[in-house]
Design a protein around this nucleic acid. Structure first.
Lengths: 141, 141
DNA sequence: TATTGTTATACTCTATAACTATA
DNA sequence: TATAGTTATAGAGTATAACAATA
């Protein structure tokens, strides 16, 4: 670890490449980046409130609304009032939304495999493992 | 590589942590993020034109100007007209600028070592090596 | 005319503060 | 009154276009 670039610079450059490829790929599925992030989070289950969903995707609740409007207009997500507290709107995937995000995910995995193909398979696996460790887990709140 | 988060999500989360720590650290040196990026690039030698410098740091030439103004006002960089083509202004570090960026770099290295301390030393080294490979080299133009 | 550095304008994204409806 | 969702307003960051000086 003698003379190398800063970790921040390296991460930013790699992230930029990943995001460029991912954006192009998602466009072919008619899905924008933030839309995909929302769909991916909802794969784990419905979000009990939009507020919690916003925190989960790391975004403000006000900025989330336009994204949800677009997804709902295309019948990829549903917003249903919670009968127990009608202020809350529980957001969930429709079957179409589930199929869409699964198709996106498959393409992303292919893209990632292609990218990681530049290094040995065991190196790539170790890289992703350490990256997961260092990135920590998503804050649930 | 069964069920894991997307590479983009992992990279973004780790980058966010790194940038937060780096920003706090740079503030103690009275240096902003983009200012540090410029200083770090200039460590390798003067930039023959602001245009080339902008491309090197991955930024528009118009957005670079305010950053250079601030750095020049604090006598950390110099802008000298090129005698052979007086349209160009060659940007270089002053001695104070060199000392400043070296101090920042040292703190950043400490921060990175602390961050990478969460995994074994050989894993951390391999991680940075693969990351460098995948990030590729900075485009000179 | 073309290019470097600069300034000015417009646009996007984000953050903050009101508004409504339910509780 | 307090909270979830929504809308509206203001601010920061960015991109694009015009401008002055030099070639």
């Amino acid at each position: 670890m003698t003379d190398r670039e800063d970790l921040g610079a390296l991460l930013q450059r790699l992230l930029r490449v990943v995001l460029e490829r991912e954006t192009a790929l998602l466009t072919r599925h008619d899905v924008e980046m933030w839309e995909y992030v929302v769909l991916a989070v909802l794969q784990h289950g419905p979000a009990p409130t939009q507020n919690q969903l916003a925190a989960l995707v790391g975004r403000d609740k006000t900025r989330l609304i336009g994204t949800l409007d677009g997804l709902q207009a295309r019948r990829l997500v549903e917003r249903n009032p919670d009968p127990r507290d009608r202020r809350n709107r529980v957001v969930s995937l429709t079957p179409a939304g589930r199929h869409r995000v699964e198709a996106c995910r498959a393409d992303i995995r292919r893209m990632e495999a292609d990218l990681l193909g530049a290094v040995r398979a065991d190196e790539a696996e170790a890289f992703v493992r350490v990256l997961s460790r260092l990135a920590g887990r998503r804050l649930p709140s």
